[in-house]
């Protein structure tokens, strides 16, 4: 099995705060992994290490088979352009249309003039491709609407479409279901799992809703205090492991 992400003995701290200490982790191509843990356990830092957005202080990170630290500026950006990324705030430009937001997914692979053309007068082929992608996430009729006129769920789909337009090898999603009502949370996870199955995309999602993680992901990685506390199938995670992960004395809260 080809390895997509690999961390060996990776550490990262921000000032005096140790966000991650001595992490060893491998994620293979096509895997769907949920990163779970309480807030402050290092989920976002781990995602950003895998996204080649942060360099580890010590240890090694390999992203799609390369060590980002030895790459030059251009190669690093090329690497990043193959990593679909869904930040928690979605990172959309509210006063632009859906089309213009999705087309920004390939921003890094174009020249500046190409960026301007994409914004103002995108090519027919590009428009068709984006229409197709929007059809797949189910909001094709919103293609020419401004993002700030869309509902929260629709905006999330725009961000997913933008990531797909990158033609990425993986999708990293930072807490996509944390600020969402339960019905919409299922919707988003169903969409992401379906896309990952159809495209063979590796999917790495950070979240803290255990029930959803168990339902949608065949592999869970539990983080606690910047260390891997659990790594395995949902069925292997018993209630003791759980309460230790979230440091809960009262088990009733979990169920």
């Amino acid at each position: 099995m080809e390895t997509v992400f690999e961390l060996s003995q990776a550490r990262k701290s921000f000032g005096a705060v140790h966000a991650l200490s001595s992490i060893d982790l491998q994620i293979a191509k096509g895997e769907r992994v949920a990163l779970i843990g309480a807030s402050g356990s290092g989920k976002t830092t781990l995602l950003r290490l895998f996204g080649a957005q942060l360099a580890p202080d010590r240890g090694e990170v390999r992203v799609l088979g390369c060590n980002p630290l030895v790459l030059g500026e251009g190669k690093l950006r090329e690497l990043r352009s193959r990593l679909g990324y869904l930040p928690q705030d979605l990172g959309l430009v509210p006063n632009l249309r859906v089309l213009q937001n999705v087309v920004a997914g390939r921003c890094g692979r174009r020249s500046i003039l190409g960026n301007l053309r994409d914004l103002i007068l995108p090519a027919v082929a590009v428009r068709r491709r984006i229409f197709e992608l929007l059809e797949r996430v189910g909001i094709e009729e919103k293609m020419y609407d401004r993002v700030d006129t869309l509902s929260g769920g629709q905006q999330q789909r725009v961000a997913v479409a933008r990531a797909l337009f990158q033609e990425p090898a993986v999708i990293l999603a930072d807490e996509p279901v944390s600020a969402v009502d339960p019905a919409r949370a299922r919707d988003v996870l169903e969409l992401l799992t379906r896309l990952s199955e159809e495209e063979g995309l590796t999917l790495l999602v950070s979240m803290h809703q255990l029930d959803l993680a168990r339902e949608f992901f065949p592999r869970l990685v539990g983080l606690k205090h910047g260390k891997v506390h659990f790594d395995g199938k949902p069925s292997e995670l018993g209630s003791e492991g759980l309460s230790a992960l979230f440091q809960l004395g009262d088990k009733a809260v979990v169920s």
Binding site: G84, N95, A104, R109, N115
Partner: peptide, 30 residues
């Protein structure tokens, strides 16, 4: 302007100048 769209584009391979053109400028334009 909110930095979210700019940093997302840079996280997916855009240079700061490209993120400026594709995200910051359009959102500041109105």
């Amino acid at each position: 302007q909110s930095q979210g769209s700019r940093s997302t584009l840079m996280a997916t391979g855009a240079s700061p100048l490209q993120a400026f053109v594709s995200a910051l400028l359009p959102s500041a334009l109105p």
